[in-house]
């Protein structure tokens, strides 16, 4: 078990597309454990991807439970699939568009509004190599798209919208 160092922009490794996982071995299981531990140390993080710790493999974790289970009366609209281990994830269906505010462990002190698919169907393997499919919407869907972006070498900064654009969308849509 280890808390790994989080790379922050402008570390160029964050821009490198990650490689598909081919061996579902013990070191992969260990990576998932370490990612989980590292994510929990991050302030309010609901996901993490291997490239954020300098590992160029298509591995990510998403768990929006901490946010959805907060004691607030108004929780974000979201599906709830618990902790998702996403190895070689692929979004096979997208539906709708919605804006929401994102931050990133790898981009300290900046948040911005990003347009994402509202609902997605995602196929992935778990750390044992078993195929899984998830239907997600809202906050959970956003988290998965954010993490898959990391696997493709993208940060939310690549997608951030100007406040004025958001203003017009919110006001007139």
């Amino acid at each position: 078990m280890a808390v790994l160092e989080i790379l922050t922009y402008p570390d160029t490794r964050l821009s490198d597309p990650a490689l598909p996982v081919t061996d579902f071995n013990r070191s992969l299981v260990q990576l998932v454990v370490d990612l989980q531990e590292t994510m929990l140390v991050g302030p309010g993080a609901v996901g993490i991807a291997a490239p954020q710790v300098g590992v160029a493999q298509r591995v990510a974790i998403v768990d929006v439970s901490p946010v959805l289970e907060g004691d607030r009366n108004r929780k974000p609209k979201s599906s709830r699939n618990g902790r998702l281990v996403l190895i070689n994830p692929e979004i096979v269906e997208r539906d709708g568009e919605v804006t929401g505010r994102e931050g990133c462990l790898s981009v300290p002190d900046y948040t911005g509004n990003v347009l994402r698919a509202d609902a997605i169907r995602v196929q992935a393997s778990n750390e044992l190599g078993e195929s899984r499919e998830y239907h997600c919407h809202g906050f959970e869907s956003r988290a998965i798209q954010h993490e898959i972006d990391h696997l493709d070498g993208k940060l939310f900064l690549d997608r951030v919208m100007s406040p004025r654009e958001l203003f017009r969308r919110k006001a007139y849509k």
Binding site: G42, P43, V46, A49, V62, R72, R101, E102, G103, H146
Partner: peptide, 8 residues
């Protein structure tokens, strides 16, 4: 509308 900032 609450703003729930996603950190990932």
């Amino acid at each position: 509308e609450p703003i729930d900032i996603l950190v990932g």
